[in-house]
Deep mutational scan, measured.
Amino acid sequence: SADYSSLTVVQLKDLLTKRNLSVGGLKNELVQRLIKDDEESKGE
């Protein structure tokens, strides 16, 4: 998976916004949300 932890919070929020995901929470939560979304989209 992508190394989201190396991105800035601003970059993470931009990715979340593009996916229509919540941008609330700490950086670690944003990273986990993106990883979870990646895993769910692979399952389709």
Rank of each mutant, 00 (worst) to 15 (best):
D37N: 12
D14I: 15
I35D: 03
S5F: 12
I35Q: 08
S1H: 13
S5G: 10
L7S: 02
S1M: 13
L16H: 00
V23P: 08
T8R: 05
K27F: 08
S5N: 13
R19G: 01
L30K: 02
S6H: 11
K36H: 09
I35M: 11
E29T: 07
S5V: 08
L12V: 02
S6W: 07
S41Y: 09
T8G: 05
V31T: 04
S22H: 10
D37K: 05
K36G: 06
K13T: 07
K27E: 04
K27A: 05
L34F: 01
T17Y: 11
I35F: 06
Q32M: 12
E44M: 14
L7V: 01
T8S: 11
T17F: 11
S1V: 13
D14M: 14
T8A: 05
G43V: 12
A2H: 13
T8K: 05
V31G: 00
L21N: 01
Q32A: 13
E29W: 04
Y4C: 03
D37T: 04
Q11Y: 04
S1I: 13
N28D: 14
V23K: 07
V10Y: 08
L30P: 01
L7D: 00
E39W: 11
Q32E: 12
S22P: 15
V31I: 14
N20V: 04
L15A: 05
S6D: 08
K42A: 11
R19C: 04
Q11W: 03
D3Y: 15
S5H: 13
V31L: 07
L12C: 03
V23N: 07
L30F: 03
R19E: 01
K27D: 03
Q11A: 07
K42M: 11
L34M: 03
T17S: 13
E44L: 14
Y4E: 00
R19I: 02
R19Y: 03
L7G: 00
V10R: 14
S22I: 06
K18E: 08
R33D: 01
K13M: 11
L21C: 05
V9N: 05
L30Q: 03
S41K: 15
L7C: 08
D37I: 03
A2I: 15
L7A: 03
K27L: 07
Y4L: 03
R19V: 01
G25N: 02
V23I: 12
S5W: 15
L26Y: 08
Y4K: 00
T17P: 01
Q32V: 06
E40V: 10
K42H: 11
E40P: 06
V31C: 05
V23Q: 07
T17N: 10
D38Y: 04
L21R: 03
K42F: 09
G43Y: 11
V9H: 06
K27S: 04
G25W: 03
D38T: 04
Q11V: 06
G24I: 15
L16E: 00
E29V: 07
Q11S: 05
N28T: 10
V23E: 05
K36L: 10
K13P: 00
V10H: 12
Y4F: 03
L26M: 11
L26F: 09
Q11L: 05
A2E: 10
K42I: 09
L16W: 00
Q11T: 05
L21Y: 01
Q32R: 09
T8I: 02
L16Q: 01
L12W: 00
V31K: 04
S22D: 10
V10F: 09
V23T: 15
S1D: 09
Q32S: 08
V9M: 12
L26P: 10
D14Y: 14
N20F: 07
E39M: 13
A2S: 11
L15Q: 05
G25E: 02
G24R: 15
Q11G: 04
L16F: 01
R19N: 01
S6V: 08
K18S: 09
D3T: 09
